[in-house]
Amino acid sequence: MTTRRVAVGEPILGANDRLAQQNRDRLDAAGLFAVNLLASPGAGKTSLIVRTIAALAPRLRLGVVEGDTAPVTIDADRVMAAGSPAVQINTGGNCHLDAQMVAQALPQLPLDGLDVLVVENVGNLVCTAAFQLGTHANVLVASVPEGDDKPYKYPAIFRGLDALVLNKIDLQPYVDFDRDYFLRGVALLNPGVAFFPLSCRSGEGLEAWVDWLAARSAERHA
């Protein structure tokens, strides 16, 4: 009988990463720009999507993959009412989307007719950071009433962002949200990340976000 130590050196989520790459290839073949939309519950992911659909139409068509832990279609219904195709993924209580769930959702959408795909992840700032989906950009929706300490408490998710939306800025007068403190934390983890303070309720600041999305989409077509 012998005992020995064997070198492995494999990323533990490598299987997910490989599936994510397949998703990416599929999205690239369809020529669209795909966003992994992250947030805690209630930050305004679906509200941002609904606002964005209206702002992009009729120039650009947006499709949505809705991730939810429970078999409710509230979010997908809102998206479809706003005029976009949506497919709902029920994660069966799971705290995050993974590449496999997205791979199953993609064939249910008319990818070739879309310019932008938004994958609305499960509302969670921890688990969602670990799983690549194959999308082109990670976008986090933070919001003013959640508090200004989020970057300090959830560093992993802030590190991987391509854009950061700060929603509900119309509530700033009513809550103790120190935007400088918030942005110092963001700069520590992710200097230079695109930042869009806005209000889905009032519409303030939406234009810069929509322009960024449209520009990224145009790059995919180029």
Partner: peptide, 8 residues
């Protein structure tokens, strides 16, 4: 986040 080695 990786598996470096195993003891067998």
């Amino acid at each position: 986040f990786r598996l470096e080695s195993i003891g067998i």
